[in-house]
């Protein structure tokens, strides 16, 4: 259970357990997942893929739910601004 995955979150290297979600990796760096239409910071609410508050940019692809995406080695994750 000790093996970990290394990925990049907002340019910072993060290690998380295998099988962890991108949301978990993001939370180690910042609780600012995305900026809302009205300009405020948002982070996960429901944790189960329903609320879409955890949308981030993964490997350049916009609007991906962090809580539904398992981490992969070398992933590039960015807050959605």
């Amino acid at each position: 259970m000790s093996s970990t995955v290394r990925l990049s979150v907002n340019g910072q290297a993060v290690d998380v357990p295998v099988g962890a979600s991108v949301a978990a990796a993001m939370a180690q760096v910042s609780l600012h997942f995305r900026r809302s239409v009205g300009g405020t910071s948002r982070a996960p609410l429901c944790g189960m893929g329903v609320c879409f508050e955890c949308r981030v940019r993964i490997d350049g692809v916009a609007h991906v739910r962090a809580c539904m995406t398992p981490v992969r080695e070398g992933m590039q994750v960015q807050s959605h601004d």
């Binding site: 998380v16 357990p17 099988g19 962890a20 979600s21 949301a23 978990a24 990796a25 939370a27 180690q28 609780l31 600012h32 997942f33 809302s36 405020t40 910071s41 948002r42 982070a43 996960p44 609410l45 429901c46 944790g47 189960m48 329903v50 609320c51 809580c67």
Partner: peptide, 30 residues
């Protein structure tokens, strides 16, 4: 899914559902 009710401040990062935080935690949320 969880019933999530609005109250002032509920959009702040750090406010989650109860089952929501449980799910996030199981997936490695610190």
């Amino acid at each position: 899914r969880e019933l999530l009710l609005p109250f002032p401040g509920w959009t702040l990062p750090g406010v989650t559902g109860a089952g929501g935080l449980q799910a996030l935690t199981k997936q490695g949320w610190p």
